[in-house]
Nucleic acid binder design. Structure first.
Lengths: 340, 340
DNA sequence: TTGTAGGCGTTATCAA
DNA sequence: TTGATAACGCCTACAA
């Protein structure tokens, strides 16, 4: 591996100063065409490429953004993958590097990421209503964007799905099919203030009032088994429940199996809905009627917002809230009079 | 955002030279305990963290590795996600940053990644038997590791699943259940020399000979629809086919549906196997008997190999070939005498 | 239009 | 055990 050419080599070969080379590299005006030609020839001949680390040091930036995705255990993760791809695409387009960090970080470690100039900005996921990471970053004035949102989002840049409305919309769909009792299995984390869980619950509660049915509710870990058992219990205890909604995407098959284990057919005897990516919805049997989770787009948007914020000193923070989109597939059908 | 403290500030506050501070930061010997204490106090007081970009410039490294995952379109991507998580975990553990690059790159752009010192090494995916990216990197002596492998792997560091043996093993399982005609739907890319596709085909051909049955074979794009239709055609044309294997993981549900559309039940009437992650296998209905694809582990191993290679000048390249592991679930059963 | 010189924050060499 | 000083490769006033 021969040593790479530097800007000095180029300058020497072209017979100019490194300043001139630098000018050309950065598309600055005021360079004689003849000079430009000679320099470009030299660059070509040496196969020179600017040393990005050195550029960054001089510029005081790193031209890279990071996504923090704290995953202790690897669960069902279709959504996260789409987030990452979206972020990566947007970052590359803007000539930014995208660092994916899955190891959980303390606030200290997070701040150090900035202090050490490893990243110019970060995207946070798995946001809680009161998120200490957000407080820490805000306090220090470091640039960041949330996929999700907090309680107080003034001055923050966020992008999130409107889970509350999503739940109402899902219930509405089921009610319109004649269902009068709709169950809901939520993600755990309501206690801890986990955004999607809390807001979904709010939506569910609103729907219960609006459509006047009694709640039938559980919070569960995201495993097939947990969902299977919980669904079974709900079915047994609530004979008038003819439909359910779940926030568990990957494990959703557990709910389907539980229904089938009671001798019921989805959707003729029992309707199921979810909030998940189109990918996952299609892979299930039957394909799931769902509120669509546009994760890739959200990742892209988040990265774009962050990068724009890095470029523009007077960038105005926005809170983007995505309207839920209902996609009817084959897991919902008109309610039967009775389940037996 | 107040300006970060630098090593100079620390030196000043502690009343020593920056050299001394540097020594302490890098755990060099020969520092008086008293001095060390003073310096550490100063570091603490200023909240100082070394400027990683500057460190990298001085050291001539970037302490980051990249994964190139060329995805034009976003398909079913459970495996890739697990790769990434594995890589990220291993990278973080070694204090390396992990750059995920999903935009397709030319060989030029790839080489520039090194020339510009943005990364110290890369992990390549989607490897072909004759891969120009590999040639380019090898020629320039840049460090890299393959998830997958080429035809000639001497001097390369690779980790791959043994697809050939995997196919034989899958056939063996089905044959042991009494199946006498086993279909196979492969990924496209055999023509282009895409490793997993070619090697699977080899394995299938070997199994056909070994267990003496006629091949029944298709190459398909990875969509539910394509798999659905191809499976249907195969079922109609080959009445003695009682089982099939597919390399399409996410779209696999298409095969299941095709079987069901012919009034057949999986696995009583027809057995299906795949080569896919345990995640995906469990989410399907019925849960799929499969050769397990340990993607996360492969990602971690790949990153570890790469980082080790970066550290040790005399690192010896290895080619890791993973033994396929059969996991019997509920999509395979003894063959019936006839399918009608 | 071009070049000189200083700086970005660190590490490494060599004296003291 | 410590401290000047010169790299690392590039950018940017400011001067010519």
């Amino acid at each position: 591996m021969s040593k790479n050419a530097t800007i000095t080599d180029v300058a020497k070969l072209a017979g100019v100063s490194i300043t001139t080379v630098s000018r050309i590299l950065n598309n600055k005006p005021d360079v004689a065409p003849a000079t430009r030609q000679r320099v470009e020839a030299a660059i070509e001949q040496l196969g020179f490429t600017p040393h990005v680390v050195a550029q960054n040091l001089a510029a005081g930036k790193s031209r890279s953004i990071a996504v923090l995705y704290p995953s202790d255990s690897l669960g069902f993760t279709e959504l996260e993958f789409e987030f990452f791809v979206g972020v990566s695409q947007a970052a590359t387009k803007a000539s930014f590097l995208f660092n994916l960090i899955v190891t959980p970080m303390t606030e200290q470690t997070l701040l150090n990421l900035f202090r050490s100039n490893q990243v110019d900005g970060v995207i946070l996921m798995e946001i809680h209503l009161n998120d200490r990471r957000v407080d820490a970053l805000r306090e220090h004035g470091y640039p960041f964007v949330l996929i999700g949102r907090c309680q107080d989002n003034t001055g923050l840049s966020t992008i999130d799905l409107d889970f509350e409305t999503a739940m109402v919309k899902a219930c509405e769909h089921l009610v319109s099919l004649g269902h009068r009792r709709i169950g809901f299995t939520n993600l755990i984390g309501v206690q801890q203030g986990y955004g999607p869980a809390i807001r979904s619950l709010w939506g569910y509660q609103r729907a219960c009032e609006q459509f006047s049915f009694e709640p039938c509710y559980r919070e569960l870990k995201p495993t097939i088994d947990d969902l299977y058992h919980a669904t079974g219990v709900m079915l047994d205890e609530q004979p008038d429940m003819t439909a359910m909604i779940t926030l568990h995407a990957g494990p959703l098959v557990g709910a389907i199996r539980a229904v089938q284990s009671r001798g019921l057919v989805v959707p003729q005897d029992f309707s199921i809905m979810g909030i998940l990516s189109d990918q996952t919805a299609q892979i299930l049997s039957p394909p799931l009627t769902a509120i669509s989770f546009p994760a890739q787009m959200m990742g892209s948007r988040a990265a774009q917002m962050l990068i724009q914020k890095l470029h523009e000193a007077d960038y105005e923070d926005k809170q983007v809230l995505l309207k839920p989109r209902l996609v009817v597939r084959e897991s919902t059908a008109p309610a039967r009079d009775s389940r037996s």
